[in-house]
Design a protein around this nucleic acid. Structure first.
Lengths: 187, 187
DNA sequence: GTTAGCATGTAAGGAGTTACATGATTTT
DNA sequence: AAAATCATGTAACTCCTTACATGCTAAC
């Protein structure tokens, strides 16, 4: 099986909570990945087909859930995760690598932290932290070395970008501290 | 000519300042779009070819710029914007539409605000503002209506996302206020 | 009765990445 | 002399968007 996209990970993660149909999945996806990008039906349904063919989810026709006029030609389809899918999801959530620290990959993984082991959560948070620290260093570098030639607007862009990175770093530090406190409590 | 990507806009904008060769363009691009994504050579050179074929830039072999061993088999190529390219760039910077307000489109356009008319700057900033306001509304909605079922981590993600949007809104408001002051000064 | 939202899909095409391929120059 | 960086490009492939195509259901 090839490397899973953030979309497939998000679908598996959503279905791990409860079975859903496609339209509902798209709405939740928008809430989940919405800050980064909106996915379209042209991406959603092929992805669901791929996951089904890989045996990670199942599709069930669901005519009962439709309105009173029962005999709809095209029934709603309910998607549910399989045992194999759950295993695969756990593996995806636990894996390390660049895709784990970048904006989208991190966002999706954190959205499913509730179903993720504390050790893995910790590793992902630390990875994200060093990714952000790199970005901060690059921004600072660019702001000081090319200081004289940067025009007002470019400087404002970079300053605001740096603010954002620093704000996220503080946030991540707080999250890591909270993880530590919980770990101490739980032993 | 089809709709230009943010990459093509960025290339034209960079070349409007001074001619550059590909490798240098890529470095500046990373500084410019870096917060959103990094572009690869596999994207850069085909884009430069496209712009050349469209007559928006020119390519000049530049063997003199290479080191002392002059007879390099493959010379560096210097890219320069044409008059047609300048016109096209101005049109791109001035256009309105969704691509003007989204993260990447806005970022690129603001990076070239120095070469953009005050009226257009104002329009782009206002557009970005309402885009952010929409996103804020959506986030608030999602945080209040589904309040009870959201787990700790999802809530943290949304809270941090909302913080970021609100921070950018304040920043945009400051920029708009600064534009107003400048406009009053300049008459 | 018509608009908006629910619901599922396909086909064509765009924009990019990764991996490959090559070679010069500079630094250590 | 090895490693890093400069420098330019191509080919295969992936993932996604846009536009199309269809039909039901609820609200106004």
């Amino acid at each position: 099986m090839r490397k899973a996209s953030a979309l497939e990970l998000a679908l598996l993660g959503l279905l791990a909570d409860s079975p859903l149909h496609g339209y509902e999945l798209k709405k939740r996806l928008t809430g989940l990945l919405g800050t980064f990008r909106a996915i379209s039906f042209g991406a959603l349904y092929p992805a669901l087909r791929g996951l089904t063919e890989a045996g990670l989810i199942t599709q069930t026709d669901d005519p009962a859930a439709a309105g009173p006029a029962l005999q709809a030609k095209r029934a709603r389809i309910t998607y549910a995760i399989t045992a194999k899918g759950k295993t695969h999801l756990a593996a995806l959530l636990a894996e390390s690598g660049p895709e784990t620290w970048d904006d989208e990959g991190f966002g999706v993984r954190m959205a499913f932290f509730n179903n993720t082991e504390a050790v893995v959560r910790r590793r992902i948070l630390e990875g994200r932290r060093s990714r952000l620290a790199e970005r901060r260093a690059a921004l600072r570098q660019s702001m000081t070395t090319t200081r004289e030639k940067l025009d007002h607007y470019t400087m404002e862009l970079q300053r605001h970008g740096l603010d954002g990175v620093e704000s996220e770093l503080r946030w991540i530090d707080d999250l890591i501290a909270a993880e530590d406190r919980t770990a101490r409590h739980a032993g």
